[in-house]
Structure formats: structure tokens, C-alpha cells
Computed example of a mutant assay.
Amino acid sequence: MRRLSLAAAGLVAALTACGGGGGGGGGAGAAPTPAPVTTPAPVTTASARPVATGPNVSGCFTEADGTIFEYGGGLPGVITGTGSTGVVVTYERRGNVCTWRPLADRLVATGYRVLLYARSAVAAPEDTAVAMARRLAKEKGVKRVFLVGGSIGATTAVPAALKLGPRKVAGVVALSGEIAPEDAARLTVPLLQIGSEHDDYGGREALEAAAAQAPDDELLIIPGARLHASALLGSPHAAQVLDAIETFMNRHKG
């Protein structure tokens, strides 16, 4: 497993002192740290972007971004970008697509085609991720797809990839997911796991699942922080996380 964690003690201390962690990372005499970072609110305020009035996904993706579609009895999704490599994003429980906009914008700008969707509260995330990957794979020009998930979306991304197989799946990116060891052991596509040290779900210990058969098995842990899933994308560590995801995808998109 390639470890991308910033583990040097001095750097950990510096990050903590600068407010890089959300809690649980400070020691005696350390500078006060801010309260745990929570998932940012959807960027749908008047100052951020106009309120959507037409077809949209959660108010932050509209027809100006791409193709809006419906599935599962009226739930919305969007396909944005024009690249030949697809990316399906499955967000965390009680989350929404809006906090994943930084990742979607970055990937579209660098040549990927991204599908985001409003997730059903009752349908199994694994089954829906499989259905969305198959939908995106049918788009003209799309060859293979990355599965990206946050929290429960990350946990179920690996079994979803196992169902789809390596001919369709280019790789898996899991943010704050607890991947079952038996699922990780069967994975034969590249895996990138990202989390923060003190996250209650998807923290350091949970990210140790080894994908022994995967051609690449990478791990990035943000030290001294308690940031969960898409909260990483709205944190001071966002650039590092986005860079890691883009680098991983560029290496494995084929």
C-alpha cells in the first residue's frame, strides 16, 4: 500500500496549530483547535449562485451544467462534462450532491465525464451505484468508469465495483469509508482511500483494509483532523485531496 499520509511529527503539529484538524489531534499545551468541521451547507445561496428554477439536482446542478435525468420514480441526476472516462459519485448518508461540486468541477475541467445523483434514502447505495455506472457507460464515447463514494457511498463502492468488473471499472476512490476486508481482498482494480485521522467513521483504523489483488492500493490520511467524507472538499486540505484524486485517476484511466 502506498501511504500518502503526512506523518512527519513536525508537520502534524503545524497543521494542528493552524486549525487543520477538527478535534482530537491536540496535546497538552497545544494551540486551541476549532470545533469539528461539519459537512458544508449546499452552495445554493444567492451570493454563491442563483437559485435554480428549472430542472436541477438539489438546486446546485442545472441544465447549464449538463444533462439532467430522472430515475427511480422521479429522483434527479446530472451528467456533466464530455470526457471518455466516467466518474460516478455516491454521497454520504444525509448528504447531497452540492458538497461534491468542488470535485465535479475539478474533474470536468480536466476531461472527465461526471455523474452525480440524488440518492434514495431507502435504496441500497451499492445497487444504485451499479445502475448509475451502467447508465454512464452507455453514454457515447465513455469507455470505463471510476466509482467515487463518501462514507456509506465509499463503503459500498467496492462491492459495486466487484459486481461491475474490471472491464467497466477503472478504479475506486473511497472517502471516509469502512471497507470490508473480504471485499478489499477481492478487488482487482486500483483503490484510493482518503480519510482523516480522528474521523469516527472511516478514520485511520478503518482505512487499513488491504486490496492485495489491486494493481494499486493507495492511502491518504489527513493527520490530526476529524473531517468526514465531502467535508474534506470544503476544508483547508481540499487542494491536497483533489490533487490526490486527480493524480490517481489520471494514472489509471487507461
Rank of each mutant, 00 (worst) to 15 (best):
G21H: 07
R135L: 07
A7P: 03
A133Q: 03
A46T: 10
L187E: 08
K163W: 03
L227V: 04
A46F: 06
T33L: 11
L11P: 01
A214I: 12
L220P: 00
D65M: 00
D199Y: 04
A174H: 07
V114K: 03
A239E: 15
A212C: 12
V43L: 10
V37P: 01
E126M: 10
S84D: 03
E70C: 03
E63V: 11
G25T: 02
I245S: 04
V158P: 06
P42M: 07
T188A: 15
D65I: 01
L162C: 00
A209M: 08
N250Y: 06
F69H: 07
M132G: 00
G21A: 10
P181Y: 13
L192N: 02
H228W: 15
A229C: 15
G73W: 09
Y71N: 02
L191R: 07
V12P: 00
D183N: 09
G234M: 08
E92G: 07
A52Y: 03
T33G: 14
V89M: 05
I221H: 09
V241Q: 06
H237E: 13
A104S: 08
W100I: 06
A137V: 07
D127K: 14
A160P: 03
A41T: 08
A31N: 05
E205L: 15
R251M: 09
G86M: 06
A185K: 14
S151L: 09
K143G: 06
